[in-house]
Amino acid sequence: MDSKITIKGLNLFFGKTQVLKGVNLDVYRNRISGFMGPSASGKSTLISVINKLVFFEEAVRTEGSVYIDGQNILGNGLSDVALRKKVGTLFATPIPLPRSIFENIAFGPKLNGTWKKSDLYAIVEESLTKAFLWDEVKDRLDDSALKLSGGQQQRLCLARTLALKPEIILLDEPCSGLDPISTLKIEEALAELKSEHTIILVSNNTKQIARACDFVAFLYLGELIEAGTTDKVFTYPDAKMTEDYIQGKFG
């Protein structure tokens, strides 16, 4: 199996508090990997290392390395801006920019120097189609994105990320505020997207992880307890703790 991301001995501190403790993990190319665990398990922090947004917090210090295609992103080789063009992020709550649907999706491509209206339109259509939103908004692309429903906004945010054609897509509990139908639509979109992208889905909804993911990693208080294929972890977990978590005994 081909690794897209390799995390080696990753420690992360907020001031004196250690939030990630010696995490070693491979994330496979063109697969959906789920990170699950109770709150404060470090799963969201872990993905914010991969997009390096964690470094906007105060007093962050890391040890260890995170390789993407063999390049250590915690080293000096790759700029944060270049990294984030490879790694797209979807946040827990939908955060549309206060502008039109079209302009939301064109935001990233414009940063990359695409300004021609027809080129942008093609990107907007393609991205919205992949996010299963095109049919619902194609007649009102110039409307404010803030007028969309929560579920539509989250798919808009997904389309906005896709517009940059990222190699990796990080989803930080993307369905925590959504109804079951909107959640299903996001999961459908992800299933299609994995042929072209490497996807990490953070969720504390074990059912969603079981439905949507090929691989799963279970974290607890900053430690990686166990990782493997979804089938393996959900049927024969190695650790008792994993089993208890999946069965909902704590969390």
Binding site: N51, L53, F56, D80, V81, A82, R84, K85, G88, T89, F91, T93, I95, L97, P98, F107, G108, L111, N112, C157, R160, T161, L164
Partner: peptide, 16 residues
């Protein structure tokens, strides 16, 4: 602040 985070996550520089 989350608008800034979205912008950064889409590969914008600070100035952008």
């Amino acid at each position: 602040n989350n608008l800034r985070m979205v912008s950064f996550s889409l590969g914008a520089t600070k100035w952008e």
